[in-house]
Computed example of a mutant assay.
Amino acid sequence: MSILVFGRTGQVARELQRAGMVTALGRAEADLSDPAACAAAIHVARPDCVINAAAYTAVDRAEDEDALARTINAEAPGAMARACADLGIPFLHISTDYVFDGQGEAPWQTDDATAPINAYGRSKLAGEEAVRASGANAAILRTSWVFSAHGANFVKTMLRLSETRDALSVVGDQIGGPTPAAAIAEALLTMAGAMTSGQPGGIYHFAGTPAVSWHDFAAEIFRMVGRDVALTSIPTSDYPTPAQRPLNSRLDCAALATDFGIEPPDWRAGLRAVLKELGI
Rank of each mutant, 00 (worst) to 15 (best):
Glu128Asp: 14
Ala85Arg: 12
Ala138Thr: 02
Asn52Val: 04
Leu141Val: 12
Ala62Asp: 13
Gly88Leu: 11
Val50Cys: 02
Arg142Met: 10
Ala62Val: 01
Ala53Cys: 10
Thr114Gln: 10
Tyr98Ser: 10
Ala106Phe: 00
Asn118Glu: 12
Ala119Ile: 00
Phe91Arg: 06
Glu63Tyr: 04
Tyr120Ile: 08
Val50Leu: 01
Gln103Gly: 14
Ser134Val: 11
Ala81Thr: 03
Ala67Cys: 07
Thr57His: 05
Asn118Tyr: 08
Val50Glu: 03
Ile117Phe: 11
Val131His: 06
Thr110Asn: 07
Ala53Lys: 03
Ala83Cys: 10
Glu128Arg: 02
Asn73Glu: 12
Ile94Gln: 14
Thr57Met: 00
Arg61Glu: 15
Pro77His: 10
Glu105Met: 04
Ala85Ile: 12
Leu87Asp: 03
Pro77Phe: 08
Ala113Thr: 15
Ala67Gln: 15
Gly78Ile: 10
Tyr120His: 13
Gly135Met: 06
Gly104His: 07
Ala76Val: 01
Met80Cys: 15
Ile89Phe: 11
Ile72Thr: 08
Pro107Ser: 01
Thr143Leu: 10
Arg61Gln: 15
Leu87Gln: 02
Gly104Thr: 11
Asn52Cys: 15
Pro90Glu: 12
Ile51His: 02
Ala54Tyr: 06
Glu63Gly: 11
Pro90Ile: 11
Gly88Asp: 14
Ser123His: 06
Asp111Asn: 12
Arg46Trp: 04
Val50Tyr: 01
Ala115Cys: 09
Asp66Phe: 12
Thr71Lys: 02
Tyr120Gly: 10
Gly135Tyr: 07
Ala67Ile: 11
Met80Leu: 14
Asp111His: 09
Ala130Glu: 15
Ala76Cys: 06
Leu92Thr: 05
Ala81Ile: 02
Arg142Thr: 04
Ala85Cys: 13
Thr114Ala: 07
Leu68Trp: 02
Gly135Asn: 05
Ala119Ser: 15
Ser95Met: 01
Asp86Tyr: 00
Pro90Ala: 11
Ser134Asp: 14
Arg46Tyr: 06
Ala58Pro: 04
Ala45Val: 09
Ala119Thr: 13
Ala81Val: 03
Tyr56Ala: 04
Phe100Leu: 08
Ala79Arg: 00
Ala62His: 07
Pro47Leu: 13
Ile51Gly: 03
Phe91Gln: 09
Val44Gln: 12
Ala55Cys: 08
Asn137Pro: 09
Met80Ile: 12
Gln109Thr: 05
Glu128Ser: 03
Asp97Phe: 00
Arg122Pro: 06
Cys84Tyr: 02
Val50Met: 01
Val59Glu: 03
Phe91Cys: 15
His93Gln: 15
Gln109Glu: 14
Gly127Asp: 09
Gly88Phe: 11
Ile94Pro: 11
Asp101Ser: 08
Ser95Gln: 04
Gln103Met: 09
Thr110Lys: 03
Ala79Glu: 10
Leu92Cys: 10
Asp64Ile: 00
Thr110Pro: 12
Ile89Asn: 14
Ala83Ser: 13
Asp101His: 05
Leu125Ala: 06
Val59Cys: 02
Ala74Cys: 09
Gly135Lys: 05
Cys84Val: 05
Ile117Cys: 12
Glu65Trp: 00
Arg132Asn: 01
Pro77Asp: 13
